[in-house]
Design a protein around this nucleic acid. Sequence first.
DNA 1: TATGAATGAGGATTCATTCAT
DNA 2: AATGAATGAATCCTCATTCAT
Lengths: 203, 203, 203, 203
Amino acid sequence: MARLSIEQLRRQELAAAAYEILQEEGIAGTTLAKVAERAGMSKGIVLHYFKGKDALLEAVMRHANALLRDEVIALMAKARTPRERIAAIVAGNFSPKFFKPEICNAWLSLCAEVPRNPTFARIQRVIHARMRSNLLSGLAELLPPERREAAVIGITAMIDGLWLRFGLNQEGLGQEEAMAQMEAVMSLHLGARGAGRIKRHSA
Amino acid sequence: MARLSIEQLRRQELAAAAYEILQEEGIAGTTLAKVAERAGMSKGIVLHYFKGKDALLEAVMRHANALLRDEVIALMAKARTPRERIAAIVAGNFSPKFFKPEICNAWLSLCAEVPRNPTFARIQRVIHARMRSNLLSGLAELLPPERREAAVIGITAMIDGLWLRFGLNQEGLGQEEAMAQMEAVMSLHLGARGAGRIKRHSA
Amino acid sequence: MARLSIEQLRRQELAAAAYEILQEEGIAGTTLAKVAERAGMSKGIVLHYFKGKDALLEAVMRHANALLRDEVIALMAKARTPRERIAAIVAGNFSPKFFKPEICNAWLSLCAEVPRNPTFARIQRVIHARMRSNLLSGLAELLPPERREAAVIGITAMIDGLWLRFGLNQEGLGQEEAMAQMEAVMSLHLGARGAGRIKRHSA
Amino acid sequence: MARLSIEQLRRQELAAAAYEILQEEGIAGTTLAKVAERAGMSKGIVLHYFKGKDALLEAVMRHANALLRDEVIALMAKARTPRERIAAIVAGNFSPKFFKPEICNAWLSLCAEVPRNPTFARIQRVIHARMRSNLLSGLAELLPPERREAAVIGITAMIDGLWLRFGLNQEGLGQEEAMAQMEAVMSLHLGARGAGRIKRHSA
DNA sequence: TATGAATGAGGATTCATTCAT
DNA sequence: AATGAATGAATCCTCATTCAT
């Protein structure tokens, strides 16, 4: 059941291959030829499944985001309190699966194209809106309305900033440190409200 | 007095033109032809003054950074206390002169190339080291050694995150809000140490 | 039967076109655009089949050499004695099909690049080794070992020299004269050993 | 006396520099910029003294030929017999000063352009005519008229062939061997006429 | 569905040449 | 005489995209 059509399968394979190339080569270096080769397909087929390079990169953006979204969903499923839900959202963004220099940089590359690519802009907007809504649903029970917006911005900006710095891949920042920074920002906005520590997968 | 040689002048003009194009078109869209046209020069002359496209973009990165550095220096000159010095560094990064979507995005574009461009990486490292050292010199009198590093990371990451978000040019974030977020982060790390408010040009 | 794949066909067509252009315009004048036009193809396809200009010229060198080699093989097949085999090798190099000013000059152009083109150098080495080995196999039965080397050098150098002079396309040298010179050189080294006259196709 | 004007001096310096570059980089690699740098002059001055690149290369051809000519003249001055005069011409072409791979190759490069460069063709013709006339003047006393032409062609072609092969810079050919080959060719045409050995500088 | 042949636009780069100083 | 700034043509090459099979 839920068998993927061959078309959906091919599209996923191509998006995954393009995601890999994107991490290694950047946007300019992500050529259709390289993607096809990585996916073990012919060059022509790429444009059979995607209207053009932009459509392929759009799929990459969705693909990458879906991976992150699933991680967040999985972590949120274990969350019991509002504070834990917020912590889960944050922790998802710093899961070892995603918080890697190449991935952060790939994401950076896509973001850098947003002003010139309306589709990217729309996807980015949707992604941000989801994170915002997730965070707000958690904050609703923790903060008065007038303070929620600032908390959302503070948390998301810090996530972005740590991703950016990590994407630059310079020494002096690891996942441990990143999570510590996030905890600090959360406590800045939430104080002692809710639980104490993030990521108590077993407690 | 202090007349720029024609070479220095041309290099500056070209870097400035390239900076403009970069803001409008991104890295891939920044072609030598466009830069030359914007600068009102011939295509050939660009490579008379710069060894190649990379060297030109390198000059752009230095150019953009120099503008920011000068702003920070100017603000720091007015600072009287360690806390004010830190505030000046932060405020420089959010001066209306630089905190514009196009500029933030241009910067993002350059950062996205860091992993594949050793020169960019080096410049980025130098820039970060300077900011770090500036911040540390202010923090030296405010925090015990073991807490300074985290403060530096927290402040720089938040700056980066706000720039990134601003570069995405989506509604809901302005300079006011950005500075408020920065104040919150600074107070998170510094508490009430030093002065109270940033940028009290008259007080 | 034995149908050439379209790829092999195109590569041959392009190499042949490039060979023509090379004869007319020299190496520097052999541009991809001219080759494509001569072959009746688009500029892009040239680099679809050849990695770059060098690879194309390499194919040209092999192409030209293959033509000469086939001629020599055909003539050698008719040779009955060692002396005739040597004469066949020599005669192949002065067959009216190849001993033309444009072809000699094209070959000169390629040789002139040998010191700066490792691939050319390798091919040239292979070609020379083949001729050398062909000659030596004929000489083995005609000369004592210590005199064979000098004979090979004498014969090949005279071939080269006549090609060079013919490539300069100045009056005063024709195929007749060239063959007479070669006969003289052969008799210098071989004396009256073996048969008397070259190319006695019917005798 | 015979002071060179500054113009003549500069022209000589530039031709010499171009000759060096030609040996290292081939014709295509011999750019005006490199020549100017090698000569320690500015790029502009090259075209002040030479009408264009072709005029410069023409000067190079004359320059190289003048060096060779002087060498031959010097050797001929010591020659006492017709046979010695011929030997001197030959020996000049294999003087260690000129018989170097780079020089042979540079000459090859120039020859390869002859069919497309009327000036080169003319110079080449003049050079060849001089050598021919030199040889003929020696042969006049040694051979009957009907055999002189073949001797000239045989000698010059062998010189060219050995130069070409030496320019390819492949193992197996040195100056010793080259001179031995030349002696063989000379004796082929001259028999025992005249003196026995070439290059008896002291005897 | 899938291939890969073919196209053509565009881009970086090189270089001879011109020209103002 | 000399410099080097400036130009623009030409070249190699890359790549997205189209198309016939």
